[in-house]
Design a protein around this nucleic acid. Structure first.
Lengths: 226, 226
DNA sequence: TCTCAATTGTCACTGAGATGTCAACAAATC
DNA sequence: GATTTGTTGACATCTCAGTGACAATTGAGA
């Protein structure tokens, strides 16, 4: 049973979030101030944090930085008022994993929190190297060789490959790939996914027009097999 | 006995819905305003909500959001006037599961409410693998083998098979299949269902003309047994 | 048992939608 | 500012779901 820490001073929002997460099988921990939130991160060991940027006393940005400082792998989803300027650079800088603007749809928040937890748990259990056919990948230093010869992949190509490898044999829809590889900040069209698959095929398949590893599942998505 | 909450201020529509659902074996709970509806969600614990978007006082959209806030798994079917712009994005945003435009056919409304309830109850447990006779299916990988040999199914065939498997031993009408497998976006003719059953039989039955698993129930629909 | 209407089985065809592919453009990086 | 990378749009290609026609079957009533 996973625990979610909500750092929020408004009672109404507090209760709404408590109900939302509790109804979906999570244990909810509430903190009303930044320092209390930091304390809870240490003591309650949550699986994710939902953090309101508008907090009395300590600014939410600083709270986020401190959390990421103490637990870099812990996903933090930020709540910001729609009147606030949503500054992607700021979010990146303070280390937030995702954000939702108020008024938010509970489903959306839930989806983003769950997605960020999935990303985090995958990162934790991610193998650092992988090999199939004559290809050897090292995700840590982002190096890939085929028959011993180095092949250059871009950062995005590595991300896609990593996700496919981690979910080998499973059919992945384009939407799932976009959600988990690209995240919610920038959400390109599904055509983009096709292109990245195309490039992986061109670089790694013996015969790109008859792929052995990067399979198309018509009407459903893609599947990596090895 | 399942309970359906109707949030609607117009007496005429109220009574019509009450009769419709009562005649089909449901208990009907009526609320005339948004806040009353929210209260009923908490106290009456309905299995589904039929919500008119045009309500006095609180806008229906907000009511829907609040309901989904309090009970994310509770299916909500929205009624909207035909003059309203039916905005799918809006519906998604407020978390509605389905919608019907006024004037609506009682049968259609009933079908959609029932379909959304079935979806909700099925969300809990959906097995990822299944086996019968010498056939083994994996719905995650979208792979199927018969006597160890792989058999290719299309995405749609997988969907139909999955639904039949999940409802094994039950007679499924063509309408029910169309509602649950095809959804309400595109609603083809019942002939289409026959065709998919035909293809499943041709691919999976030893003798397609004497099916052992995909049974026809004359005058009623189909039934999957194993 | 026979007849007949309704239901279902079956097949080939087709158009909509899904995917592959490339080139041009935009954005990021150096 | 040059180069690399990511994304989009356009177009070609392909797949398959859906349709309609007709045959076969079923079941009710004569």
């Amino acid at each position: 049973m996973e625990k979610i820490l909500v750092v929020e001073d408004d009672r109404t929002v507090q209760n709404a979030l408590k109900r939302l997460f509790a109804a979906n099988g999570y244990i909810v921990e509430i903190a009303r101030t930044g320092p209390a939130g930091l304390e809870s991160v240490r003591t309650a060991l949550p699986a994710a944090v939902v953090l309101d940027l508008r907090l009395p006393g300590m600014p939410g940005q600083d709270v986020c930085r401190e959390i990421k400082n103490a637990a870099p792998a812990l996903p933090v989803v930020v709540l910001s008022a729609s009147t606030d300027v949503v500054d992607k650079v700021l979010l990146l800088e303070i280390g937030a994993d995702d954000y939702v603007t108020k008024p938010f749809s509970p489903r959306e928040l839930l989806a983003r929190v769950q997605a960020s937890m999935r990303r985090a748990s995958r990162l934790a259990a991610a193998p650092e190297t992988f090999a199939f056919e004559d290809v050897a990948v090292n995700f840590t230093n982002m190096e890939l060789t085929q028959s011993g010869k180095p092949v250059a992949l871009t950062a995005q190509e590595f991300k896609v490959l990593r996700f496919l490898v981690q979910n080998h044999d499973r059919v992945i829809s384009r939407e799932e790939l976009l959600n988990d590889v690209w995240g919610y900040q920038n959400y390109p069209s599904t055509r983009t996914v096709d292109n990245h698959i195309l490039r992986l095929r061109q670089k790694l398949e013996k015969d790109p027009s008859h792929p052995l590893h990067f399979k198309t599942v018509h009407g459903a998505g893609y599947k990596f097999v090895f």
